[in-house]
Each structure stands twice: as structure tokens, then as C-alpha cells.
């Protein structure tokens, strides 16, 4: 069993289709949704984690490819722009999982560990420099 993080974008044509249901039912995947925003007749965003056999995950990705859905594997919908980050550390206390942390005490260097991020968006509000942003 492996776990993959994916971030999907649904254009207007695909928002009415029960895609997550079929990922569970047909490919036997365990689905953990971080965040979703689907507006019928408009568009949708879905950020989730899928766990299953490698073969099933590959088949599920092929199935998703049959739709007009944009798949970004591993790329979460929360972004930390290293260039915009001023390394102040204001975010660190607001990040509940330690995804944003001080990795070098001497120079106070901040880093973002995507794997630990649960997309709570606390950093987006806390960062004065606009270094943290959400795709939706």
C-alpha cells in the first residue's frame, strides 16, 4: 500500500460527476480529503490523499485522465513561496503540524515541509509578506 497526495481541478463540465465515489468503489482507495470547494455549474478544487496498492493508484490516475480534470500529484494547494518568505518566523507558532518550522536556529532559516501540511491555511492569515497562499 502506498499513499499519494493529489490536488485536482475540475472545470465546469466535470463538477457534476461523482468522481471521488468511483475512486473508492472501483479502485479500492482510501480517500482522505483535506479541502474541497465545488461550485455546481462553475468549477471545483479538491485536495486529497489516496491510499491503495500501486497498481490501483495507477489505474485510478488513468481513470481520472479520462475526464477533463487537471491532476497535480504531490502538489498541494497550499504554496510557500521561498522567494517571498522574509524568514521572520511569524507563521511558525500558527502552524499546528510543524510543516512550517525554523530549521536553522543560528540563522533563523524557515522551511516548509509539504508532507506535514494539513492545509488549515493558518499560515496564509499569519504571514505579513504574502509568502503562503492557497490555490483556492
Amino acid at each position: 500500500m502506498i499513499t499519494k497526495k493529489i490536488y485536482l481541478y475540475f472545470p465546469k463540465s466535470e463538477t457534476e460527476k461523482p468522481i471521488v465515489y468511483r475512486l473508492v468503489k472501483e479502485f479500492d482507495l482510501i480517500v482522505n480529503i483535506f479541502r474541497a470547494k465545488v461550485t455546481p455549474e462553475e468549477e471545483g478544487y479538491l485536495s486529497l490523499e489516496v491510499t491503495g496498492t500501486e497498481e490501483n493508484i495507477d489505474r485510478a490516475f488513468a481513470f481520472l485522465g479520462g475526464f477533463d480534470v487537471v491532476i497535480q500529484a504531490g502538489n498541494k494547494s497550499v504554496r510557500w513561496d521561498e522567494g517571498r518568505c522574509a524568514q521572520c518566523g511569524a507563521c511558525v507558532v500558527h502552524c499546528p503540524t510543524g510543516a512550517l518550522s525554523i530549521v536553522d536556529r543560528a540563522t533563523r532559516t524557515i522551511a516548509f515541509c509539504e508532507d506535514n501540511c494539513v492545509e488549515c491555511l493558518a499560515c496564509v492569515a499569519a504571514c505579513p509578506f504574502g509568502a503562503c497562499s492557497s490555490a483556492f
Binding site: 522574509a86 521572520c88 511569524a90 507563521c91 511558525v92 536556529r105 540563522t107 533563523r108 524557515i110 505579513p128
Partner: peptide, 24 residues
Amino acid sequence: RSGEVDLNGKKVPVTSLSSYNKAL
């Protein structure tokens, strides 16, 4: 700068708005 101080027996996290990294 250690990131945590003791206030009335309770540990309180501390962060900065000023960037020591950029100042350096």
C-alpha cells in the same frame, strides 16, 4: 529567540516579526 519562554510556570511560544536571517 529560543522560540519558547516560561511565563508563570507555563511554556509560551515566541516568534518574531523582524527577520534575523535578513538582518544577518
